[in-house]
């Protein structure tokens, strides 16, 4: 119809303009209050820390600007290794976790062994501390064949992927189970096989439901790649450790920590935005 023309013709009345002005004023006021309250909080918190009796020593040991500037390039170089490990681990986790989730969803007695393997795997690796998995993979696997040398970073990537695949598989499976059974029935009634039903109907809807949970796991993995330092890979944490050993100063750890936070920050904000958008869609009555 003539919707577009009508929109152009629609001009708000004085009443509505007044209301908008009032809302703008109210939102300005809340921003101002938030700002004042934040400054007050930060001021009091900062004052408590700075006036504590040991502050001078702490500042020397943890917030030494000179050492921070010195160690920064080395730690940044180490972080590049973390980023590469993260990249490959993400791909591995996506593939393995999907396989595991599908294996667990298989019906029928023939598939029992696959189902059992998938269940056993997720049970085992969700229970094992990441650090122990890293030790076992990092030192155990090379010992199987002492002649060949596998780069430590690769072993670290494998260890991280093993653990996170188990978590992500469970998230995906929960998502698949949250898709209403009527969707499955509708797909099967069209003649789609179990596999096609999963691929075309269930998994796309399941993914949409678990996007926030998956993003959360990703953020968590982003920092856990720092654990590969225990194998001796020179990543950001290890680089910081090296500088600390040379200078007897903990500032490099603070620098590495801040870099990890900076790395995860965009993803955290993106997760919030996506979650908020999905919540809005649900409120409008759309199917998420």
């Amino acid at each position: 119809m003539t919707d577009r023309a009508a929109v152009e013709a629609f001009s708000p009345s004085a009443l509505e303009l007044d209301r908008r002005l009032h809302r703008r004023r109210a939102s300005r006021r809340s921003v101002l209050i938030a700002l004042v309250s934040t400054l007050a909080f930060a001021g009091v918190g900062g004052w408590l820390v700075v006036t504590s009796p040991g502050w001078d020593g702490v500042r020397q040991m943890f917030f030494n600007l000179e050492i921070a500037a010195d160690s920064f390039p080395k730690i940044l170089e180490g972080l590049w290794l973390n980023i590469r490990v993260l990249f490959f681990a993400t791909i591995a986790v996506a593939v393995v976790a999907t396989l595991l989730a599908v294996m667990r969803s298989l019906r029928g007695p023939v598939w029992f062994p696959l189902r059992a393997i998938a269940t056993g795997y997720t049970d085992l690796f969700r229970g094992l501390p990441v650090l122990i998995v890293l030790y076992l993979v990092g030192f155990g696997v090379p010992a199987l064949n002492p002649e060949t040398r596998i780069p430590i970073a690769v072993l670290g990537t494998v260890g991280i992927s093993l653990c996170y695949s188990a978590y992500v598989a469970e998230v995906l499976r929960a998502g698949m189970e949250a898709v209403h059974p009527s969707q499955r029935i509708a797909a099967r009634s069209l003649g789609l096989s179990h596999a096609k039903t999963l691929r075309m109907v269930v998994i796309p809807q399941a993914l949409r439901k678990v996007v926030p949970a998956l993003m959360n796991d990703f953020v968590s993995m982003q920092k856990d790649v720092g654990l590969i330092s225990v194998l001796g890979a020179v990543d950001a944490v290890r680089a910081a450790q090296i500088v600390t050993a040379q200078t007897y100063n903990f500032t490099p750890y603070v620098v590495a920590g801040l870099l990890f936070v900076a790395m995860s920050f965009p993803m955290i904000r993106l997760t919030d935005t996506v979650s908020a958008r999905m919540a809005r869609r649900e409120q409008q009555g759309g199917t998420v």
């Binding site: 708000p12 009345s13 009443l15 509505e16 209301r19 009032h22 809302r23 109210a26």
Partner: peptide, 17 residues
Amino acid sequence: VDDGRILLSGDDITAPD
């Protein structure tokens, strides 16, 4: 609402506050 006014028992419920 994007314009206009709604009154519930005489109270303007579209007032911004």
